[in-house]
């Protein structure tokens, strides 16, 4: 048991943090008041510096990939990371990225499709991939703060991937959990800043216990989620993966509500980035069937059938 990064992981983490502190990762209102901005610049920098390959590096490993997903999801800009950092190195290392993932119905809108160059289709029995060409994707209007698109299924050629489909789904549970936990953490950080600054009744909002206790509960859940995610990334055990996702999805609704309550009307405007995190969280909390389904998988993995 050693819950600290090794030397290489520390270096990776420090370098990553420096990159993510850059201006290109910051919030600026999107043109036409769109609800999202894709972080093209940081995406390219991360790819050029090999960050998405961390999982395949012996001294970094999937733990670092999960940590990176968690950190990148804290940015106000959206960057496709979970599939590139956790799935791609495992069974599709040549796949061009960004990558969109079909985790349920292929005809539904899928996040990151508008900028994706390939798709991974996960199901219980197999894993397929397809390279995207111009015209394969139609951009979809959305409430969620992700670029969403719909696939023209008829135009695609699918390749079967020789990998364990169940394991791929477990990895994806970990990836989604890390992205969701990161989105909540990003939102929490912005609300913390706000409640320290904003005064009402002659004192900072954050000095009220009604606010303090709910934020404290929130950070306890997010921190524990992060640890459970990192543990699952290392063990890749089905129970650990389901638990990490279930625990994260289970808390997302309440935390999302609290964050908006404490940001008040400012959080309802597109001039403040809170929606970037909470509307990503709203989508991710229902991914792969949502918390109930993930808890069900955990119960199956831990206790077996009835």
């Amino acid at each position: 048991m050693r819950l600290a990064f090794n030397e290489d992981q520390t270096t990776f983490s420090t370098f990553l943090e420096q990159m993510l502190a850059s201006d290109v990762c910051g919030f600026r209102p999107a043109p036409e008041w769109e609800r999202l901005e894709y972080g093209d610049a940081i995406d390219v920098q991360l790819a050029e510096n090999g960050f998405f390959d961390a999982a395949a590096e012996e001294t970094l490993g999937p733990v670092m990939a999960a940590e990176m997903i968690f950190k990148i999801a804290q940015l106000p800009v959206a960057v496709e990371c979970a599939a590139s950092a956790l799935l791609r190195p495992n069974f599709a290392s040549k796949l061009p990225r960004p990558i969109a993932v079909i985790e349920a119905e292929p005809h539904h809108p899928i996040r990151f499709l508008p900028m994706a160059r390939s798709v991974i289709w996960l199901s219980q029995s197999k894993v397929r991939t397809a390279i995207l060409k111009d015209g394969d994707v139609q951009k979809a209007d959305t409430l969620f703060a992700y670029p969403m698109g719909v696939l023209n299924m008829a135009a695609l050629t699918w390749d079967d991937v020789d990998t364990d489909a169940a394991k791929a789904l477990d990895l994806w549970r970990i990836g989604v959990a890390a992205e969701l936990a990161g989105a909540l953490k990003g939102g929490l950080n912005s609300v913390l800043e706000h409640v320290k600054e904003r005064h009402q009744f002659g004192r900072p909002l954050g000095s009220f216990q009604a606010v303090q206790h709910r934020l404290a509960q929130g950070v306890i859940e997010i921190d524990s989620a992060r640890w459970l995610i990192l543990k699952a990334a290392q063990s890749q055990d089905p129970a650990d993966a389901a638990l990490a996702l279930a625990h994260t999805q289970n808390m997302a609704t309440r935390i999302g509500y609290d964050l908006h309550q404490f940001m008040g009307a400012m959080g309802l405007t597109l001039e403040h980035p809170l929606h970037r995190w909470t509307y990503r969280a709203r989508l991710l909390r229902s991914a792969l069937g949502g918390a109930s389904s993930a808890f069900g998988h955990y119960a199956d993995a831990r206790w077996g059938p009835a």
């Binding site: 524990s224 640890w227 543990k231 638990l243 289970n250 808890f295 069900g296 119960a299 831990r302 206790w303």
Partner: peptide, 19 residues
């Protein structure tokens, strides 16, 4: 099953934070 899994998740969350 859901409630059992939620209780287990609380235990594992606590365990990992203590560790």
């Amino acid at each position: 099953r859901l409630r059992a899994a939620q209780a287990a998740a609380s235990c594992e969350a606590a365990r990992i934070l203590v560790y």
